[in-house]
Design a protein around this nucleic acid. Structure first.
Length: 343
DNA sequence: ATGGATGATTATTG
DNA sequence: CAATAATCATCCAT
């Protein structure tokens, strides 16, 4: 119903010639009684109508004759024009949709992960080496990174080979369809514009397949990332000395356990960890200490005494010349205190 | 195997 | 943006 009305409006909008030739069969007879050119067109149309009644050989012969007819190009272009107007007015709406943000996101991510970007065969090894050299623990990170990179390269390779396959299939199919349409355009009205549209449709179909490929590749990369790069999955406890240093600072600044940026850098250097690790540690420590002060009381006492002893030792060394015996015994007293607090 | 410890991440807040 | 709080994922002693 709706289509029909649109079809009608499309036809009424056409030029007089087209309307006379196609819209009304009676016009053929009317035009036959007119001049010579109309006579020719009438003949051609009658021949076209009669083709269905003929044998294949006859039809081929007549087809050839029609193809060679001097009026054929003109008639062809007129028919193309009619078709263009009707077909495009019916379903020419859903063309040229804007680039899908989903696709953009996938593309960006694949590019960021180095999956879809330019090849960098030697570069990745160099980058891994650089990362290993820069990192604190070369053996650890470089081995795991190379593992990660190997898997990423695998994904990348699969992605590219699949993409290439799709592109090849797409161009093959496009060529095939174009040839077919070109061939058919000798016997039925197909304008170059129509072929273009058909190609665009094919490309859309194939790009939707490619999007699926991109999507699943993204998923694979995400899984790989979460498995290999998520630091939580391979966290190492800090070594004893590092924990010692951090705890010492924490308990000796218990009233305000917020090290400044410089203090954090200092601690990081002393412990062989990064500043952000120091921040993490203090964040965790503060919240956990606050949550259960009782649990940490022992530890607190221990470190309080320890720092006291250290301080005593330092001052003992500083003033050893004055009264070595006194300071040495002070250190011993502090040690005793330490033992008492543990009871 | 299992539960607590622990380093890292995420969401929320000021 | 840094601190907090909750949570995750792993480590490790049992």
């Amino acid at each position: 119903m709706d289509d029909q009305t649109r079809m009608m409006t499309g036809l009424t909008g056409l030029g007089g010639l087209a309307q006379a030739d196609v819209g009304d069969p009676d016009s053929v007879r009317k035009q036959q009684s007119l001049g010579q050119p109309q006579q020719d067109i009438g003949d051609i149309l009658q021949q076209i109508m009669a083709i269905t009644d003929e044998s294949l050989d006859e039809a081929q012969a007549r087809k050839h004759a029609l193809n060679c007819h001097r009026m054929k190009p003109a008639l062809f272009s007129v028919l193309c024009e009619i078709k263009e107007k009707t077909v495009l007015s019916i379903r020419g709406v859903q063309e040229e949709d804007p680039p899908d943000p989903q696709i953009m996101r996938l593309d960006n991510m694949l590019l960021a992960e180095g999956v879809s970007g330019p090849e960098k065969g030697g570069g990745s090894a160099a980058a891994a080496a650089a990362a290993a050299a820069a990192g604190g623990s070369p053996t650890d990170s470089s081995i795991e990174h190379s593992d990660y990179r190997a898997k990423l390269a695998q994904i990348r390779q699969i992605y590219h080979s699949e993409l290439e396959k799709y592109e090849q299939a797409c161009s093959e199919f496009t060529n095939h369809v174009m040839n077919l349409l070109r061939e058919q355009s000798r016997t039925r009205p197909i304008s170059p514009k129509e072929i273009e549209r058909m190609v665009a449709i094919i490309h859309r179909k194939f790009s939707s397949i490619q999007m699926q490929l991109k999507q699943s590749t993204c998923e694979a990369v995400m899984i790989l990332r979460s498995r290999f790069l998520d630091a939580r999955r391979k966290r190492r406890n800090f070594n004893k000395q590092a924990t010692e240093v951090l705890n010492e600072y924490f308990y000796s600044h218990l009233s305000n356990p917020y090290p400044s940026e410089e203090a954090k850098e200092e601690l990081a250097k002393k412990c062989g960890i990064t500043v952000s690790q120091v921040s993490n540690w203090f964040g965790n420590k503060r919240i956990r200490y606050k949550k259960n002060i009782g649990k940490f009381q022992e530890e607190a006492n221990l470190y309080a005494v320890k720092t006291a002893v250290d301080a005593a030792n330092v001052s003992a060394q500083a003033s050893q010349a004055n009264s070595p015996g006194l300071m040495a015994s002070l250190g011993g007293i502090m040690s005793v205190c330490c033992c008492i607090s543990l009871l």
